[in-house]
């Protein structure tokens, strides 16, 4: 992968863990929708053939030495994109749930509004999307909690289909939540007074593999994320721990 050759250049980031069944199709779809746009797959130490599949589909692959979890995997991609000078990064999950045909819409909002983050939202402008009941309860709770914190409603806070600009990349290279990062990332941005927008999208069923959030983990997920949100609000950034 080359350095960003021109200003305002976009990179597509695909975090993947054991997605050998879906990742190659996702890359091809992205290439069809956004020809010539660099695609980086961050392979979170998959135990299957994800690395080879992604490579053979024409993507660059950042291979983590061991499993870091979604947050560490996405942050690694953000770090590389930032170092290579990219202006925008749009994250598309490697399981095929995010339809790449919405990438231009996300990019358009990022460029035209100058917002720092754009979220592909299943529930924005009531586009008739449904999700499992447990997850729906979780999303309802998160919306309720996030509304006063963010100062505006967020319809789909758990969506991983997001685009960020370079200012956000800079923040995320230094501070990015490790587990279930989507919601906490919004709070991290709010602390910087960054703006986000939502774009209506339709999600698809995952093509292969299993979700990282199973029914059993849902309760843990809700408690963990709520705690993470409050900790992020209270976080004192004046004195960072030494690295």
């Amino acid at each position: 992968m080359r350095r960003a050759a021109q200003p305002n250049q976009l990179m597509i980031l695909i975090p993947a863990f054991n997605e050998e069944g879906a990742v190659a199709d996702v890359i091809r779809e992205v290439n069809q929708v956004m020809p010539g746009v660099p695609v980086l797959v961050t392979d979170d130490a998959s135990r299957d053939d994800t690395y080879t599949q992604a490579k053979s589909a024409g993507a660059d692959v950042l291979r983590l030495p061991y499993h870091l979890g979604l947050g560490g995997c996405v942050q690694a991609g953000y770090k590389l994109a930032f170092e290579l000078g990219y202006e925008y990064v749009i994250r598309v999950d490697g399981d095929g749930q995010h339809d790449p045909k919405y990438i231009p819409a996300l990019l358009d909002v990022l460029r035209k509004t100058g917002c720092h983050m754009v979220i592909g939202s299943r529930f924005y402008q009531n586009n008739g999307e449904h999700t499992s009941s447990v997850r729906a309860i979780g999303i309802w709770v998160f919306r309720l909690v996030l509304r006063p914190i963010l100062g505006k409603p967020v319809h789909d806070p758990t969506s991983g289909f997001v685009g960020v600009n370079r200012d956000t990349l800079r923040v995320f290279t230094g501070s990015f939540p490790l587990e279930y990062p989507e919601i906490e990332a919004l709070v991290v941005l709010q602390r910087k007074r960054f703006r986000f927008e939502e774009v209506p999208v339709r999600m698809r069923k995952r093509k292969a593999g299993r979700s990282t959030i199973t029914a059993i983990k849902s309760l843990y997920y809700i408690i963990h994320v709520l705690l993470g949100v409050f900790v992020n609000i209270l976080k004192f950034e004046g004195r960072r721990r030494k690295r």
Binding site: M1, T42, D60, V61, L62, R63, L64, P65, Y66, L68, G72, Q75, A76, K79, L80, E83, L178, R241, K242, R243
Partner: peptide, 23 residues
């Protein structure tokens, strides 16, 4: 917690350096 932070940062750095070497 400190060790975990350092460990993650180091794993990411190793991956990025390896990626750039390969490039």
């Amino acid at each position: 917690s400190d060790l975990k932070d350092a460990n993650i940062a180091m794993a990411q750095r190793v991956a990025i350096i390896e990626f750039q070497l390969q490039s």
